[in-house]
């Protein structure tokens, strides 16, 4: 036989001119995203060098914002951002977990699609509308609860309120308004849709065989959910939480509308006064001198890097988990 002469043919694909142009356009469009992200980092850094050069490492430890006298740093606003984001996560995760489980496990099939659409719609509500709602409605509702908490649990450091006497029921309500708690609750509601939709996606991928096995062995629905769906979706839950955290860190307008800004680290979440990097930028950009603008750019750069780190950590957790491997 002539088997040894039958070598595989060399296949070479030649793109014609039209396709070469098309592939070139596609590649450059794809690169545009990379270019934009690189430019964001580059320009913020360039603009921030002046401010960073002035205060040096003190930028990370100073609790003040007076750029024109050279006394400024992001210690207070970063702490405020993290506090608000953590409250938001604390509010959003239990509700998102419940809603995601409801949609994927409990909801009747015919309303499932409608519920998914409603979650998407909630993600599209502008943040300024959330801010209006938080400021004109939620604030009045949360104040009595905050008052009650501070009066009964003031021995927990972060629930105490300066200027409020636990034994005096007539404490003015104004010390409980514009607090990190209210801003955190509003931001929590804003990140709930994204967290819910990531979790729901993961839960709906839980293997049908394992679900049926659990139910067939006599498990209750909750037993099945806990042992199959939740353990399958563990990575997805953590990833979704961190994605939500990334969003919460960057939220601007709703926070700006609710808080009254302070420039010290303010860990008492029920008390009037809070701050965040993004609302600092929104607050001070208008009156900023060149130095002030540079300082704001430095703050923006810090926020940008923080959200990038949180986000990459989140996506790598999701990708490594059993549930994320397929997506």
């Amino acid at each position: 036989m002539a088997a040894d002469t039958q070598k595989p043919r060399q296949l070479k694909y030649v793109w014609d001119f039209q396709d070469q142009v098309f592939r070139g356009i596609m590649r450059s469009a794809g690169s545009s995203v990379l270019i934009i992200m690189a430019l964001v980092g580059l320009f913020l850094t360039l603009r921030a060098t002046e401010a960073l050069g002035t205060v040096g490492f003190g930028f990370f430890t100073t609790q003040a914002w007076e750029p024109d006298s050279g006394n400024f740093g992001i210690a207070a606003v970063i702490a405020g951002t993290v506090i608000i984001a953590l409250i938001a996560i604390f509010v959003a995760v239990p509700f998102s977990l419940g809603t995601a489980l409801y949609i994927s496990e409990y909801a009747p099939r015919r309303i499932k699609r409608m519920l998914i659409t409603m979650v998407d719609l909630m993600a599209a509500i502008p943040s300024v509308v959330f801010g209006l709602w938080g400021f004109f409605f939620l604030q009045n509702e949360v104040t009595p609860v905050a008052k009650w908490l501070s009066q009964n649990f003031s021995w927990i450091p972060f629930l105490s309120v300066q200027g409020s006497d636990p034994s005096d029921p007539l404490t003015p309500n104004t010390v409980f308004t514009s607090s990190s708690l209210i801003a955190g609750i509003v931001v929590g509601l804003m990140i709930t849709p994204i967290v819910t939709s990531v979790m729901r996606e993961v839960f709906s991928q839980a293997p049908i065989g394992e679900r049926e096995a659990a139910l067939g062995l006599g498990s209750t629905r909750w037993g099945m959910v806990r042992n199959v769906v939740l353990s399958f979706g563990k990575g997805g839950i953590i990833g979704a939480t961190m994605l939500g955290l990334g969003r919460a860190l960057g939220e601007t307008i709703a926070v700006y509308m609710i808080i009254s800004p302070v420039f010290v680290v303010q860990p008492r979440i029920l008390e009037n006064g809070a701050n965040s990097v993004s609302s600092l930028i929104a607050l001070r950009y208008g009156e900023a001198t060149q130095m002030g603008m540079s300082a704001l750019m430095a703050a923006g750069l810090a926020l940008f890097i923080m959200t990038l780190i949180v986000n990459f950590a989140a996506s790598s957790i999701v990708a490594r988990s059993r549930s994320g491997a397929s997506s």
């Binding site: 990379l34 964001v40 320009f43 994605l243 960057g250 993004s278 704001l296 926020l303 959200t307 996506s315």
Partner: peptide, 16 residues
């Protein structure tokens, strides 16, 4: 990177 960009804080986009 597209996923990272969806999480870009909107105020940072304005600053950029």
């Amino acid at each position: 990177m597209v996923e990272a960009m969806t999480a870009l804080p909107s105020i940072v986009a304005g600053l950029f």
